[in-house]
Every structure is written in C-alpha cells, then in structure tokens.
C-alpha cells in the first residue's frame, strides 16, 4: 500500500503541521447534518443555535441553559477554538453537556467550520433576532 505524500509528511512531522487546508462550505453543509439532532442555525434546540456564532464567547446566549463547564471555559468561538472543541468536546471542555465523540477528521472539521462561518453570518439563514 502506498501512502499519499502528504500523509507521510504528517506521520513524520506530527499532527500540528498537518492542519487541513481551507474548508469547503459545501461539504461542510453535508457534515452539519450530523449536528441537526441537537442544533440548528436559527433556533435553540437541545443544543444552542448557531447564528452569530463566530466571535461570540462560549455560553453567551441569554436564552439557553449551558453547563457550568462551558460557562467557565473562557472560550471565544473562532476557527481555532472550534477546531479544538469539535475534535473532542468532552476533552476540550470536561463537563460539557455535548455528549459527542467529536469530528475526528481534520478536513471534515475544516469543512464544517467553513460552513458555519458562512451560514451563521448569512442574513437569509440567520434573520434578524436569531443572533445575539
């Protein structure tokens, strides 16, 4: 079996040098379907809504009940913090109520984050009032 060149570099250099390239929001939209049992863009569900996510401190929606762990996390949602959190939510913020193993594939996370970055700022998907 032949490994792709990039994969070999990753194995040698370590994961930190192997961050996924730019995410594809189209693929990210498909990955976001995994989130739809608990989240939506516009409405709070068993998880908080995502409109206005970027730049928002964690646990900042006034109309959602968060875990104490997320409230005290000090996180602000951006590409880096989302990448870290989504890889393993329970490890990133022990005590979070997001009982999900995480999106382990770095390219999938990049795609998902690219979608979130686009969709959560989209005036049609996130009409006035859906962002804090």
């Amino acid at each position: 079996m032949k490994y792709p060149f990039a994969a070999v570099i990753c194995l040698i250099a370590g994961a930190s040098l192997c961050q996924a390239a730019d995410g594809d929001p189209g693929r990210g939209a498909q990955i976001y379907q995994r989130c739809l049992a608990c989240h939506s863009l516009e409405h709070n569900r068993s998880g908080p809504r995502h409109c206005g996510l970027f730049g928002r401190p964690a646990a900042a929606l006034p109309d959602f009940s968060y875990s104490p762990a997320l409230k005290s996390s000090g996180l602000v949602w951006d590409e880096a913090s989302l990448d870290h959190f989504l890889e393993n939510p329970l490890k990133a913020v022990p005590g979070t109520r997001m009982a999900y193993a995480g999106v382990k594939n770095s390219q999938e996370r990049a795609d998902l984050i690219a979608y979130l970055k686009s969709a959560t700022r989209d005036a049609e998907k996130c009409p006035s009032g859906s962002s804090p």
Partner: peptide
Amino acid sequence: GAVSAYLGA
C-alpha cells in the same frame, strides 16, 4: 441527525 448523534455518542 439523531443517527449521527447516537453514532457520535
């Protein structure tokens, strides 16, 4: 979404 949620849990 529920399928993914259980799978992820």
